[in-house]
Amino acid sequence: MTLPLILGCLWLVLANVIAMFPTRDKHIRAGMVLAVVGIPLLGWITWSNGPLWGLAFLIGGASIMRWPLIWFWRSVRRTG
């Protein structure tokens, strides 16, 4: 297993652990930090291991970060 895949798995575990604990800001700050770290990590995984692994981690990350994606989709539909 390559280093990007190991870091990607750690990111997925960390995101799930963060989601388990309640916060006052509804995980907005944690989501921003996870996105800032996760997007370059996704690019690194895709670059070093191929598009299938990149797609697998994209789907895994999207399942964890689904509310920001839903909010983004709603804002795009409102403006367009």
Rank of each mutant, 00 (worst) to 15 (best):
G8Y: 05
L69S: 06
A30M: 03
W53T: 01
G43Y: 07
V17D: 05
W71N: 13
D25F: 00
R29L: 13
W73C: 12
S63I: 13
R29S: 07
G80Q: 08
I59P: 00
M1D: 03
A62F: 15
S75Y: 15
V76F: 14
P4S: 03
I70D: 09
R24V: 05
G31C: 00
T46I: 02
G38R: 03
W11P: 00
S48Y: 09
W67L: 07
A35R: 04
S75A: 13
M1E: 03
G8S: 06
D25R: 00
L14R: 13
N49I: 01
H27T: 05
F72N: 06
W71P: 01
M65P: 05
T23R: 05
N49Q: 07
V36G: 01
H27G: 03
W71K: 12
H27R: 05
V76E: 06
L55Y: 15
I59K: 07
A15G: 15
A35Y: 06
F57K: 05
W67E: 15
R74Y: 14
F57P: 00
I28G: 02
W73G: 12
A35T: 12
G60C: 14
G54R: 01
R78E: 06
V33G: 02
V36L: 15
P40F: 10
W47L: 15
V36W: 13
F21N: 07
G80L: 09
M1G: 01
L7K: 04
G54Y: 03
M65G: 09
R77P: 00
R24N: 08
G61V: 09
L58A: 14
M65Y: 07
L14W: 09
V36P: 00
G54F: 07
I70Y: 13
T46S: 05
S48E: 15
L52Q: 13
P68D: 08
S48V: 05
I70T: 08
M1N: 01
I70F: 12
I39M: 10
I64Y: 09
R74I: 10
P51M: 14
G60T: 12
F21E: 14
L12E: 01
W67Y: 13
K26W: 15
P4T: 03
T46G: 01
M65H: 08
R78L: 07
G61M: 11
